[in-house]
């Protein structure tokens, strides 16, 4: 299983701070699409992704037990 963490407005859109999901073997891009559909999140494709607190590209493949965080860039200032 994998733990998925949502930051900032993604959490409000998802309705959860974190969820458990089976994502091993999927790429980050695939996971984003799956999560976006399942939790009704609109702009997940532009979000940054951390696997185990390390920035990861859309091509990275997720392993069992990895914790994935979606951190959307924000622009306020």
């Amino acid at each position: 299983m994998n733990k998925i963490l949502f930051f900032a407005h993604l959490r409000d859109e998802a309705g959860h701070e974190s969820v458990e999901i089976e994502a091993a073997g999927k790429t980050v891009a695939e996971l984003k699409q799956m999560v976006a559909e399942k939790y009704g999140i609109q702009k997940l494709d532009t979000s940054m992704t951390a696997i185990n607190e390390e920035f990861s590209s859309n091509d990275e493949v997720i392993k069992a037990g990895d914790t994935i965080a979606f951190i959307p860039p924000v622009s306020g200032g």
């Binding site: 930051f7 607190e53 390390e54 920035f55 590209s57 951190i71």
Partner: peptide
């Protein structure tokens, strides 16, 4: 690292960037 935080939800996260350079 790339820092992000949420003060209301008591979160603080440091994302390592060693693989981020394209």
């Amino acid at each position: 690292s790339f820092v992000s935080f949420d003060l209301w939800r008591n979160q603080y996260t440091s994302m390592k960037m060693s693989k981020a350079k394209d």
